[in-house]
Design a protein around this nucleic acid. Structure first.
Lengths: 247, 247
DNA sequence: CGAAGTATTGATGTACTTCAACGCCTGTGG
DNA sequence: CCACAGGCGTTGAAGTACATCAATACTTCG
């Protein structure tokens, strides 16, 4: 099963798709002309490398800028009053970090790089100023914020109503979709996070995650080799999530 | 215990606090001058009454405007693929409805008035145009969107890590805080929603909600008379949520 | 090679659900 | 006015999905 591990995550360079940063990539279809892009480039100048195991920011850090992930994978998590951890999301290429810190001016979560990563730094003051002159970009930014609300609500729905197998299926499909949209293989996934992280995100314990993976393997839904996952029957996975397959 | 029912929710008029609408109220501390307020008033002209049991919008409705709740209480819920309901939030005075529809242009949830309600209609196109000219308002709007993300994430955390009693305690405290901030009693709550709605929101069954209410009553944390709730020991309730009181 | 982190699998425990019965309240029609 | 139905809430008994505890294997790295 080592072929899976080898084939997943073709980590070639992503620079072709966005010359400066993923946010610019997000904005290109918005009718920004050369001038607008130049102004955007003037705001987004700084890049930052974050190696695996390092934090990009931590709870309580002053919020001064958003970060657009250029490469790599982040886990964002909070710590409850009694120290229990709750993972609130996994962010990869083209996704923004720090949106929840705009209100409050302080980061609410810890952003940890799960693999070596790189981000574009977007100073928020200057970015907001820029928005007032670029209605298309403003509109886009509001849509991004709104989409982030939708993502959280979808997860809420999962945590509130779904069973363990449905949650894991939904998780795999979400990852597949997001990676597929970024030109990666939608069926060969190299998970950057542990079973414990997945479980934490899904409101499950790591043993349960492991058991469900094994169950999926037995049922021929996926091939599992540690953190390398191949989706074998995406239709049945989808059917599981949509509740067509009840027990 | 009828005194509780009588005392809760003094439903007198709210016009004193915000002459046109709750959003304007939100914006007043932002250094908007008379001119700015006038421009805001020109955009927010329409009000709409929604009587109890009526929907303000439904899934799939075209998104053209946000709604600021002036009075009453809404429940926003989604229906899963198989018809299961998931309540994503309860909105009251001064809170916005429809933020999740900005991306996509279509409402993702159903907004149902639990009691007679009234909203201010905020045409979103014109509102966005207005933002470009009013940096303070823009900033405030971004903060509102961001706060909405935080709210969802907090609920995620609850659903993912907390036990039934902790969830209900957190729910009561959240309600208490929000109503308190709006000049209502923070200890005498007249819940506008059923046990089933609460359970659905918290990822629990209605029987469980009922049992936990009874448990809280036995422990002297709250007085319960149907939907009229009096918080008797807010400190112990807080201790429960923060995990200080483990079993 | 040994140590530490990570994953799998089994046995047992439990928090919550499900099923069911009953009481309370409100409204409606005879 | 009372009878009765339907919605909502409470409480008990039994069932189940997941957690917890525990043993073992795998993977990585010094």
């Amino acid at each position: 099963m080592n072929d899976i591990a080898a084939a997943a995550l073709p980590h070639e360079d992503v620079k072709k798709r966005c010359s400066t940063c993923s946010l610019r990539h997000l904005c290109l279809p918005l009718g920004l002309d050369q001038d607008d892009i130049k102004r955007l480039d003037e705001v987004i100048t700084q890049r930052r490398k974050v190696s695996a195991g390092q934090h990009l920011f931590r709870v309580g850090d002053a919020f001064r800028s958003l970060a657009a992930v250029r490469a790599g994978f982040f886990k964002v998590y909070e710590l409850g009053a009694d120290g229990r951890e709750q993972v609130t999301g996994f962010q990869t290429e083209g996704e923004l970090l720090g949106l929840d810190a705009i209100s409050g001016g302080v980061h609410r979560g810890n952003a940890l790089a799960l693999v070596d990563a790189e981000v574009c730094v977007i100073p928020f003051d200057r970015f907001e100023d820029l928005l007032t002159g670029l209605p298309g970009l403003q509109r886009r930014f509001h849509a991004i914020l709104s989409a982030s609300i939708v993502t959280s609500q979808t997860l809420m729905m999962m945590l509130g109503t779904m069973r363990a197998e449905h949650r894991l299926a939904a998780f795999l499909l979400d990852l597949s979709t997001r990676l597929g949209a970024r030109g990666r293989s939608p069926t060969l996934l190299q998970l950057p996070m542990s079973r414990e992280d997945i479980g934490n995100y899904l409101g499950l314990k790591l043993e349960t995650v492991s058991r469900v993976f094994s169950q999926f393997r037995r049922e021929g839904l996926v091939a599992v080799a540690g953190r390398a996952i191949e989706i074998l029957d995406i239709d049945r996975l989808r059917a599981l999530v949509s509740g067509v397959l009840r027990r």
